[in-house]
Design a binder for these strands. Structure first.
Length: 191
DNA sequence: CGGCAGATACGCT
DNA sequence: GCGTATCTGCCGT
């Protein structure tokens, strides 16, 4: 059945946040593939005070309320973009923030977009991921099933390789443990 | 390497 | 106006 991958994303953000660890994100740009393995995520949903969707749908957040498998990109701190995979049923307002990747292909191009930085500094943070993959507001709302940005679902990781903690950079709902990362992975944003 | 200030624009109150 | 799902450079240890 086509779009089976999307069905897996039509689930609570907390569940999808775990599911996305180990999956691959492929950015196609200028006939090049930039790809990485997702190593850190955070879940956000409508009943969560830290979520952009908490106060209901607005023009900024409407993508979050749409069907699963689309990209929600937001701009913050006057200079940074961050990207999310929309999850849940249509109308739900939930998404998973991609906080860090382990680069697989195209590190040379990523380094160029990242101001000549290399290694873990390429993609160990949500805004760094967007800069390395050239993701900005023009990709808000794109379908993750095909170019220019594709999500490939790999087999789920075993639970013992996943660490669950509280989220980073928020002032609301600090105690909610909806950050997930791959244990011992050096591309995770903070240890 | 850890803590802190500054950058800087936009959504929402 | 105010706060922000961040990053960087600069300082001190």
């Amino acid at each position: 059945m086509p779009d089976n991958w999307r069905t897996e994303l039509r689930a609570p953000a907390e569940q999808v946040a775990r599911r996305l660890l180990g999956c691959t994100l492929v950015r196609t740009i200028n006939d090049r593939h930039l790809s990485g393995r997702i190593v850190e995520t955070e879940a956000y949903d409508q009943h969560d005070a830290a979520s952009h969707s908490y106060r209901g749908q607005t023009s900024r957040t409407k993508i979050m309320f749409g069907p699963a498998g689309y990209l929600y990109v937001y701009f913050t701190y006057g200079m940074h973009y961050c990207c999310n995979v929309v999850t849940g049923a249509e109308g739900e307002g939930s998404a998973v923030l991609i906080r860090a990747l382990e680069p697989l292909e195209g590190q040379d191009i990523m380094s160029h977009y990242r101001g000549a930085r290399t290694g873990t500094e390429l993609t160990n943070g949500p805004a760094k991921v967007c800069q390395a993959l050239a993701i900005d507001k023009t990709l808000n709302g794109v379908d993750l099933g095909h170019e220019p940005l594709r999500l490939l679902l790999n087999p789920p990781l075993i639970p013992s390789s996943i660490v669950q903690t509280t989220r980073i950079g928020i002032s609301q709902a600090r105690e909610v443990p909806w950050r997930f990362f791959i244990k011992d992975n050096k591309f995770v944003s903070r240890r």
